[in-house]
Every structure is written in C-alpha cells, then in structure tokens.
Amino acid sequence: MVHNSLPLQWRKYPERYYLRGNYCENCKTSFFPQRQICPNCRRKGKLVEKETPYTGKIVSWTEVSVAPFGFENETPYFLAIIELENKVKILSQIVDSKKEKIKTGAKVKKLFRKISDIDPEGAIAYGYKFKVVD
C-alpha cells in the first residue's frame, strides 16, 4: 500500500500520522481504520471521527524473514497484531525492541517512523510503528 499513488497516501495521513479512526456513539465501539458505516448498528449507527490511544498490548506476533517489495533490506523484522486501549486491533511493525521482549501481552507504544523511502527522488511515506515498553 505504501508504494501506491500519492493521493491515496495523502488521504491516509490522519490514520498513519495520529491513528485517527472512528467511534460509533450508538454502540460505543471504536474502529480503526475508519468504517463508512457501523457494522453493529448499520443505519442506526452514529459514527464520529476519533483518535485511538497510542498504547496497547501485543495479541499476536511474527518474525518476517522474506519481505514483500520495498522491505527486503529490513528483514528479519517483526509484525504484530496489537490491541489498543480502546480494544481496537491493528497490525504494525515492531521496532526498537529486543526479540525476547516481543511476546503476547507485552505493552507497546506508538512511534512516528518512515514506512517507505525506497525512491531517492520520491516522496517519503511516514506512519506508525510500535515499540515494546517495559
């Protein structure tokens, strides 16, 4: 996704820069990325934009040895499904953390990092990664 068109990247800045998701005021559920309609309440749902918390815990993780295009030089790296404090689950890279600390239940916090910078003359894609905090 990060190597896609500039307008697509630009539209995702609120999501990638400060985890802007949305929240249904009817069923009190948070979503990330944003939903167009609330899957629980359908037409009765009332979605408003809302930032998700920057901290959470690892639900599941994996070590990537064979990376997709653009990430080849980063291997081995860690990917994790993280449950944020508002129960929203997101997928993110885990960086700046020792392997033995990356485990289910480990507390993590959001960082602002470069996601892709493979074209020296292209635009840099910034976004979120997470690190384990003690």
Binding site: E74, V95, D96, L111, F112, R113, K114, D117, Y126, K129
Partner: peptide, 16 residues
C-alpha cells in the same frame, strides 16, 4: 538514527 528515522521523525517524537 535507524534506517527508518530521520530529522523529521525525531522532531515529531520530541514535539509530542
């Protein structure tokens, strides 16, 4: 700085 850090990412963290 790591490969995915630059003057901008350091700025954002310090600013926060």
């Amino acid at each position: 700085a790591a490969f995915d850090e630059d003057a901008c990412t350091l700025s954002v963290e310090a600013a926060r």
